[in-house]
């Protein structure tokens, strides 16, 4: 375990300069996630049109891992179909060892699948922090359940 693996520069960049921070004015679904043991909060607005995520905005506060994960997630889902978002969630959870299965990261094609999100794979080696990385994704799943009814 090394701290350098956990705190990649891209993570610190997203922590300090979160992308897509704010809220959505028009039609959207809102979901909130809370990690009661540590107090991290994350909230998400997503706008879905014709089965595609057309906009996403995030709010909340917490540690670098939860906030960077949310920032990267918001960027990653825009323009994706709901099916593709489901696939992304699945790949993320495999990477984090939240779901059982092979780690989807293809070392020969770094960045091809999860993009910046691959920077979070170091979290896997710090089991108590996995829930931090997962908070935005659990919130996204709540939002999607509302979208799909």
């Amino acid at each position: 375990m090394s701290l350098e693996e956990l705190y990649r520069s891209v993570i610190l960049d997203h922590y300090r300069n979160p992308r897509r921070r704010g809220s959505i004015e028009g039609d959207h679904v809102h979901a909130e996630g809370l990690n009661p043991s540590c107090g991290d909060e994350f909230a998400l607005d997503i706008a879905v049109e014709d089965g595609t995520v057309v906009d996403a905005a995030i709010q909340g506060h917490g540690c670098s891992i939860s906030q960077a994960s949310g920032s990267m997630m918001a960027e990653a889902i825009i323009g994706k179909s709901l099916l593709e978002v489901d696939e992304l969630i699945h790949k993320f959870k495999l990477m984090m060892a939240i779901e059982e299965g092979e780690n989807p990261i293809d070392e020969s094609k770094p960045g091809a699948v999860l993009g910046d999100l691959e920077a979070l794979q170091g979290v896997r080696k710090f089991p108590v922090r996995i829930k931090c990385a997962d908070l935005p994704w659990a919130t996204l799943q709540d939002a999607l359940r509302e979208v799909t009814g």
Binding site: L3, Y7, G62, F126
Partner: peptide, 20 residues
């Protein structure tokens, strides 16, 4: 963030509480 501090300190053998 306090949780990041706690993780970094843990790597140095220092146990502190982080949170509310």
């Amino acid at each position: 963030h306090a949780h990041d501090l706690a993780t970094i300190l843990d790597q140095e053998g220092v146990a502190v509480r982080a949170g509310h």
